[in-house]
């Protein structure tokens, strides 16, 4: 089985920085896995996510997602690839403030023809939308302004948006750090339940190891990152 994420020999250094931030020999994630990646703040977790999202390009090495080598794509193609195959969840402030909940969730469908075509016709789109918002318990909020939501509700809207249109991979950058402990676990249960339905792969990044046990596999960034090891 081909890995959904396949990184080999990458090295990334911010322009102006004295030493590289990341140097990863080998890192793979299989389809459907739920991976917990942890490490201290400033350790390069977000940088790795941005590389996987195709926002940053490593100076050396290969990054391949779903068998597609990102290095071979132009920046416009990488943007389209990200729009079609990846769902991204931030730590907080995930939502566009001037769109309501529904418009926020529907936004990726407007940006990606691929996500649209996966859902087929309007009716299927509506069904899927209804299914996701009901599963996440935000069906009563869809016409609300996003500024009226609680933090927990906003994060669930972010999950709905990341998943709408069935992307294969979810990248989550500390999405629970603004939630209290009880809500964190609930949030992750919810995320997993809905991801399992469509066999979506989840790469979850956090500095807080208390959630580690809920995942299939846990990876310590410093173990795969050669920078700072020597």
């Amino acid at each position: 089985m081909n890995p959904i994420i396949d990184i080999s020999n990458i090295e990334f250094q911010y322009s102006g920085a004295e030493k590289p931030t990341l140097n990863i020999q080998q890192f793979q994630i299989q389809k459907g896995e739920k991976i917990f990646l942890f490490g201290p703040s400033g350790g390069g977790k977000s940088t790795l996510l941005e590389i996987l999202a195709g926002i940053l390009v490593p100076q050396k090495g290969q990054v391949s997602i779903l068998g597609q080598n990102l290095n071979q794509l132009s920046s416009v193609e990488r943007d389209q690839f990200r729009a079609g195959h990846l769902g991204y969840i931030f730590q907080s402030f995930n939502l566009i403030p001037y769109l309501n909940v529904r418009e926020n969730i529907e936004l990726p469908l407007h940006l990606s023809p691929l996500r649209r075509s996966r859902l087929g016709d309007n009716l299927t789109q509506k069904k899927e939308f209804h299914h996701i918002v009901t599963a996440l318990g935000i069906d009563h909020l869809i016409e609300k302004k996003v500024t009226e939501l609680s933090v927990g509700q906003a994060q669930r809207v972010a999950v709905a948006r990341a998943l709408y249109g069935k992307p294969e991979l979810i990248l989550a950058d500390e999405p629970t750090s603004s939630l209290d402990h009880d809500h964190r676990e609930k949030f992750i249960h919810l995320l997993f339940r809905i991801c399992e339905e469509s066999k979506t792969t989840v790469l979850f990044v956090s500095h807080d190891r208390s959630l580690e046990k809920m995942f299939d596999r846990s990876v310590k960034l410093s173990e795969i990152n050669q920078v700072g090891q020597s």
């Binding site: 926002i55 920046s75 943007d79 729009a83 991204y88 931030f90 402030f93 995930n94 566009i96 948006r161």
Partner: peptide
């Protein structure tokens, strides 16, 4: 800036 980052994460390019 935050809004731009969200749009970027959803697949918008810098030209967008």
């Amino acid at each position: 800036r935050r809004e731009m980052a969200i749009l970027r994460s959803l697949g918008a390019g810098t030209n967008h």
